[in-house]
Structures are given as C-alpha cells and as structure tokens.
Amino acid sequence: MDSTAFGCFLPPFHDPSVSPQAALKHDIELCGLADDLGFDEIWLGEHHSSGWSTLSSPDMLIAALARETRRIRFATGVIPLPYHHPLHVAERMVLLDHLTAGRAILGCGTGTYVHDMEMIGVDPGTVRDHFRAALETVQALINGETVDTTTPWFTAKKAVLQLRPLRGSIETVVASSLSDAGIELLTDTATTPTVHVVPPWGAIRPGMDPDPVGSLVERVESYRNKSAGSTRIRCNVFVHVSDSTEAGIDELINGWSALRRDLYRNILGTPIPDSPAAHRKTLESLVKSGAFIIGDTATCTRMIRDLLDRLGEPVSLNFFVPQWISYKATFDQLTAIADEVVPGLFGGFDGTAESMKLTSEEAGRQMKLRTETIGNGGSK
C-alpha cells in the first residue's frame, strides 16, 4: 500500500423512511462505485438496533461484494468483538480473506450501542476487558495457534482454525480514540488504529472542542512515539465538495440535522440541543475548526493536504459517507472527490496547467513577432 491511501467509511446508517432493501442496494452500488473510482479500501459498519443502523453483518455483505469488485479492499468497520465468540470471528475473517482474494481487513472494536449489548447479555461495564481478551484470541487463531483459554466471557478448548490466511496474515485495525489506554492496547497487540476526526454526530454543541484536528494530531504523535517505527494511521473525515462553503452547509443541513435529532438525540439519548439554530451553529463550528471539510474543489484540496501533512505518513484517509444528502448526490460527491480532489493532492493537474501556460506564452511571443514584422513593412 502507498504511504498515503484513500478510502471510504460507509456507516450502517439507513433512513427508516427508505425501504431496507433499497437502502442495502444503494450500499452495494456505492461500494461498486468506490471500486470503479480507484479508492483503496471501504469500511462497512455493524450495529444491531436503533432502526437506523440496519447493517448487522458486514462480513456477509463483503462476501457478496467480493464477486462484484476487483481491486478495492474491504474492512469490517467494525466487528464488536464482545458480541461474538472469537473462534467464529477468526473463522469468518479467514474465510472472507479467501473469498476476497486477500482483500479483507479485520476492523474491530468494543461496540457502542448499549441495546446491542443488552439484547445478548453483554455487560457494558466489561466490554473493554472482554474486547482485549477476544482480540488476543482472534489474533492467535489467525496466526495458526491452538488456543486453550477460559475467561469470564468465553471459553476456547483446543481451538484451532482449519483454514489459514491466503497470504500468511490478515491486517487487524482497532477503532480507537487514541487515549492512553487505547495506545497501550494498540502497542501491546501490534495493531494499528482507525480514528474519527470527530464522532459521527460531529459535536454535541458548537465549539465544544475548538481544535479537534490539533487534539487528534497530538494523540497520533503520542501513539507513534510509543509504537514501533512509523505506523499507519487510518483517519475518517467528512468532505463535501460544493460551489462554496456556505452553499455546502445549506445542502447538508437538513440531512445532518435529521440524523443528529432522530437517531442520536431521540433514540440513543445523546444530549444534543434540538433547534435549527443549534444544528447549524454546530455544523458551522465544525467547518471553521477543520473537523469537517466543506467548500469548492480548491478549498477541499488545500484542507485535506493540510490534514495529511499534520497527520504524517503512512496514513489512510477514509472519507466518511453518512448519506446526509440524496443517493444520487452521494454518488456525485464520491465522484467529485475521486476525480477532482484526490488528483490535486498529487499534482495530477500540474502537467496540463504547465502545458497551457507554456503554450500561451509561446503563442504570445509569436504574435508579438508577427506584429513587429508587419509593423516594419514585412509580409504577413
């Protein structure tokens, strides 16, 4: 993988007013588009409740997508390890590794929805310890080890996988806030992190964190200082290309407000103020701080380049695709990012711009020579 890579983070959010079958069809088509556009990877989430988060098995969706795509890598974004027996997670990931011809990434985390945990009897107070024990077991199984262990949450007796990874290993990435405890887990388990610039709801109130990007950069530096060598950071960021920042905010505000109000506030209980003014001010604050990138192509390119420079290499920047806008507009956004923004980060337009400049200058010189020749009595 190149030192700088680009992907998409597709959360399991689906507007309840849209048919679940149609929403799933849209997800499949978005993944196919991401592959066609040349994105390096796509992350597919998992939740089990709320009515909005209806993708319950990213590995099944990835298996279906494997035959419809050719190059893009697929990551479970993320499998909550406390919800599953580690043997089954390891088995499914190795099978997925074969079905995708080595394009599977194990993205894992603790889980976030309390009702998801309650439905299967998982104690929310134990998920961190449970997660660590499960992660260590999953890693051992994928590495071909035989595991005998008993924990308060699961038991493995002479557990061993029948299949081995296609090319010897499967990349494991952990959803992390890069807290001190999170950094310790990452370094102890030799895994790499995926982190949001800001949470999916953005911020509860405007200005809660005046410099979220700076805070993230500090945590990334702390992690890299404590990990072995230069380690890859995956960072999820929201980008929206529009005629201007103000126009982009107007295009997003209805969908952005609906998700914050209907899912995070009304269903999940996040204390988000529910007024049009509060939603707009929060969105404007996120844009001003650089946590959300909204604007014309030049603005988006400049802000992404700044974020990449601050995060350092190696880094994978995954564009957050929450579908706050229409399905067609989401397609157009991914296309604009891939065709107009990403090339500009690597000088993709420099050659044609330089050629136009040189050609124009030469044409000007030739025209001046002709004018001078005619003025001196020469023939045309």
Rank of each mutant, 00 (worst) to 15 (best):
Thr187Ile: 12
Thr192Leu: 07
Phe154Glu: 10
Leu259Arg: 08
Asp148Asn: 15
Ser176His: 06
Ile120Gln: 04
Ala228Pro: 04
Thr155Ser: 11
Val213Arg: 06
Ile233Thr: 10
Glu145Thr: 03
Ala247Arg: 10
Ile253Ser: 03
Ile233Val: 12
Ser169Met: 02
Glu221Ala: 15
Gly121Ser: 01
Met208Pro: 04
Val241Ile: 14
Val127Cys: 02
Pro165Leu: 12
Glu246Ala: 14
Asn225Pro: 10
Thr155His: 09
His240Gln: 12
Gly248Glu: 01
Gly182Met: 07
Ile142Arg: 13
Arg232Lys: 15
Trp201Pro: 03
Thr187Glu: 07
Gly255Asn: 04
Ser179His: 07
Glu218Tyr: 03
Thr149Cys: 09
Leu135Met: 03
Gly202Asn: 08
Val220Trp: 03
Pro165Ala: 08
His196Ala: 15
Asp180His: 12
Ala190Thr: 07
Leu135Gly: 01
Ser227Ile: 08
Glu218Lys: 14
Ala190Ser: 09
Glu221Gly: 15
Val213Ala: 06
Ile253Val: 06
Pro206Tyr: 15
Pro152Met: 01
Val127Ser: 02
Ser222Ala: 11
Leu186Ile: 04
Gly207Ile: 05
Glu118Tyr: 00
Glu251Pro: 01
Ala159Gln: 07
Asp148Tyr: 00
Ile249Ala: 11
Ser176Arg: 06
Cys235Gln: 06
Asn236Leu: 10
Val237Ala: 13
His130Ala: 06
Ala181Ser: 14
Thr191Pro: 03
Val213Asp: 13
Arg232Glu: 14
Ser215Cys: 14
Val127Gly: 04
Thr194Met: 15
Val241Tyr: 14
Thr191His: 09
Lys157Ser: 13
Ala133Asp: 11
Leu178Ile: 09
Ser257Glu: 08
Leu259Gly: 04
Ile204Lys: 01
Leu166Asp: 04
Arg132Lys: 09
Ser222Arg: 10
Thr231Asp: 04
Phe238Val: 03
Leu252Phe: 10
Arg132Tyr: 03
Met119Gly: 00
Arg164Gln: 12
Leu252Cys: 09
His130Ile: 10
Asp209Met: 13
His196Gly: 13
Ile120Asn: 01
Thr151Trp: 02
His115Cys: 00
Gly214Glu: 14
Thr126Tyr: 02
Ile204His: 04
His196Glu: 15
Gly248Cys: 00
Gly214His: 13
Asn254Leu: 13
Ala159Arg: 05
Val127Ala: 03
Val127Pro: 01
Val195Met: 05
Ala181Leu: 10
Phe154Leu: 08
Pro199Ser: 12
Ser227Leu: 04
Val237Glu: 13
Thr126Gln: 11
Met208Ser: 08
Pro206Arg: 15
Gly121Trp: 00
Gly182Phe: 07
Glu171Leu: 02
Ala247Gly: 01
Arg128Glu: 07
Ser242Arg: 10
Asp148Gly: 07
Asp250Arg: 09
Pro212Leu: 12
